[in-house]
Structures are given as C-alpha cells and as structure tokens.
Design a protein around this nucleic acid. Structure first.
Lengths: 233, 233
DNA sequence: TCAACCCATATTTTCGAAAATCATACCGTT
DNA sequence: AACGGTATGATTTTCGAAAATATGGGTTGA
C-alpha cells in the first residue's frame, strides 16, 4: 500500500486528529502561535489541510490540556498568558515534581540511573557543541525535556506523570515566551549536574530542594524578562 | 425564538458537544456505562441523538480527563478500572487535596467559612432525612461534592483546582463501583464534621490529617468491596 | 446625540454521506 | 490439520455542505 503517496502527513499518531493535535501543541508551546491568538477554522484549515471537524477535535483535546481556550459559540484561541497563571503552574509543578522525584529516588533501579546519566550527558554535549541560546535549539529542547523526564520516570504512577507532562508543556510555553528577551541563559548546566548527582546518590532531600530552586528560578526569570507580555492582558 | 421547541436538549453548556460531554461524564462516573464498555458510535448516536463528529468531540474531551480510553483507529471505550489505577488516583488526590486544604485554611475569609458550614449542614440534613445508602441518592452526591469543593474553594489556584476536580471525578467512579456491594456506609457524617471543625478553627495540620485519612479509608473500602471487579481485568 | 433594533456578513457548529481502516471468516495450499 | 493470504462486513474516521449562531454596520426613533 503506497499510502505515503496518497496521504503524506501523518507523522505522529495514527489518526489525522491525533497528528494535528500534536502539531498544534508544538506550535503553541513554541509560541509560533502566540498567546491569545484567535484560532479560526478557515486559517487552520488551510494551514493544516484538515476539515472543520477534525480540527475541532484537536482543539478540544488541547483545551482540556490548558493550551487552548474554548469560548463556546465563539471559537477557540490560544490560551492567554498571565503572571497569575505562571505562578499557579509553577506552584503546581513544584508540588508534583517534588513528589515524583522522591518516588523515583526511592524506587529507581539501575536502568533509571543509566537513563538519568545518559540523558544529562546528551544535554551537556549539545550545550557544549552549540553555546547559543538553548531554547532556540530544538535538539536542546528535546534533550532537556528527556533529562527531566528521566529523573521522574521511576516514580511508578502514570496518573501523576500525565499531570506532570501537562504542566511541563504549559511551563515550557512560558519559557519560550521569554526566550527572545532573556539576555543570556543562566548556568543551567551546573544545576542539572547537581540534580543528577543528588538523585543518583539517593539524597532525596537535596534533590528535591535543587529541583524546587531550579523550577522557581526559571519561572522568576520568565516573569522578569517577559514582564511586558504578562501584565498587558 | 422558541428554540426550546426546536431543540429541547441543551441543558449544560451552549453547544451540543459540551452538553453531551457533560451527560456522558455523568453516566461514566455513575457506572451507568460500566468500565471497559465499548463506546460504539451507532449506539451513542441513537442514545444521545447526535452525529458522529459531535460525539467524537465529546469522547476526545473525556479521554483527556481520563474517563474514556481512546484506542486509535479502534474506537473508544469507558476507561477500565484496576487496583493500581485506584491507588494512583488516591495518592494523587491526597497530594493535591492536602495542598489545597492548607491554602484554603490560610487564605479563607468569612465567606469561605460560611460556605464550608452551610454545605456541611445541607449534607447532614440529607443524611438525616434519608438514611439509605448515600451514593444512590443523587442529592447526597451533589451535597457531598459541594462540601468537599467548599473546603478547598479558597485556595486561590484555578490550575490545581481543575486537577483536583478531575481526580475527584475519577475517584467517584470507583466509589460508585463498590456502592452496590458495600454493606453499609461507614460513619462519614462524623468525619465530615471533624474536618469542618478543624478547617474553621484553622488547624491546618489536623485538617490535613483528617482529609488524608478520609480519602484513604474510602479508597480502602472500595478496594475491599469491589475487589472482584478490580482484579479480573 | 444616543440607544435600540434589524439586517447582512462572517464564523462557528452540526450533520450524514463517503472514505479509510480494522476484524473476521473463508478459501486454497502445504 | 495448520497456515497464510484474501475477500467481506462492521466500525471508525474524515470530509465539505448546510444549519445555527455571533458580529458589525447602518438605520430609525426618541
């Protein structure tokens, strides 16, 4: 079946709807679709080559994830940003991530340690190779995400992991929001290294403290350098 | 415009999709649609009088909430239940609810106290009036939900409240699952009273401890009396 | 001048037919 | 009998037209 010739665009997921959900999510997180932007069906239809209903399904899913704002009978728009929302996401992330790190440190086996070490290694390699602004490098983004994912991967609870993933996405959108205005990234490499060491040495209290600082200082940075985007809404 | 004559069914939400999402959610939580049940479009179409795409949108939303399981290209089914899932939901609820109770106790004003007291009062009235099995009484269900909602309503973070609401729904489904097999409800009235008093007297540590016990003992009850439904899956 | 109303247009929302995909039973071959 | 492939029916998934609803502008009347 030469289906790739007939329908070339179905990279992620088996259905078109799942595929578009994925692509839209990426664009919203990257702020290629800026916060508050109206999502009109005519435009999306042309952009993604899908029908009304398929797009509607994707937007509904993203609305449940908090990346899209559904206004009944008045369409959809990219979820707006606000200082309050950033604070709430940050607090929620700390609450969940701290719990998951503790569980992972308690339950993690050899494979977990290897995953943590190797994902950090890859992250550092990318940072060395290309000292540019990390958030503009798609590879860095993926590696960064995978390192943090690895840290909590041994927690043993899919429910909290799913919640964590949602919050991570929403937070990453804010990081992108400020990426264009942040003068130079702070020393994340050192922080990641310290977190890895605390985790591998099973020092849960230290790891938790480092993670909380990591999350909160990132959010503070965003709040500082994207201030002009957060208050005028 | 006599729209009620033309389209009588749009009780919750402005759009049909939102309405059906709501109705389906209720039925799944109440186990009127049992766990694992395939959700075929033909059947749903007749049951809810909506078209394929509208139903699809509703199911997609519920899948994001964890009440429906979407199997790509193979349709939807009511999310299955399992002992592990119950444990995870319970742990997640404790984590979130404890945080929200603390915040509410710290921030709650007079209106919050009034809401807590009055929702508990209504709950007790319903329990006195009708000593039957509470979970079979829709009024009790609503009052119970509203009491717990009131307790955390002053927390000041919509993000965590939304997560809490999702987890509450998923847990309530498990309560319904065991309701038909539980011989007699334990003394919830006393527990609720104690929680209310701890909250109003701003004794956060006690309130947190009571809530955790409340949530966990309910889950234990479910695990005991619905054991035959949790292991054979 | 201003508000209220109605109309025209833009946009969303819903529908059922049509296409794509999956599941099953059947058949032929080994 | 076991296996692999294929046709068939059942089901999901997608599409674009049509209905429903919102938006904006212009007119009227006070």
């Amino acid at each position: 079946m030469p289906d790739s010739a007939i329908r070339p665009r179905k990279e992620f997921g088996k259905t078109i709807a799942a595929d578009i959900t994925h692509r839209l999510r990426e664009e919203i997180i990257a702020c290629a679709l800026p916060p508050g932007e109206p999502l009109r069906f005519d435009v999306l239809r042309e952009r993604f080559g899908a029908s009304f209903t398929t797009l509607r399904e994707a937007l509904t899913a993203l609305a449940a994830e908090g990346l899209v704002d559904a206004q009944e009978q008045r369409g959809f728009r990219v979820a707006p940003v606000s200082r309050q929302d950033l604070i709430e996401i940050t607090d929620a992330r700390v609450l969940v991530e701290v719990e998951l790190i503790r569980r992972s440190i308690q339950r993690g086996d050899d494979d977990w340690e290897i995953a943590v070490i190797s994902t950090l290694h890859r992250l550092k390699r990318i940072e060395q190779r290309d000292p540019e602004h990390p958030l503009r490098d798609p590879e860095w983004k993926i590696a960064h995400r995978q390192f943090h994912q690895a840290l909590v991967s041994a927690c043993g609870t899919a429910t909290l992991l799913a919640i964590r993933a949602e919050l991570f996405d929403r937070a990453e959108r804010y990081r992108h929001l400020s990426a264009n205005f942040r003068p130079r990234p702070r020393d994340k490499a050192g922080e990641h290294q310290a977190i890895m060491q605390a985790a591998i040495s099973r020092n849960a209290d230290l790891a938790v403290q480092l993670i909380e600082t990591h999350i909160r200082s990132t959010a503070d940075n965003v709040a500082t350098y994207a201030a002009h985007l957060l208050d005028t809404e």
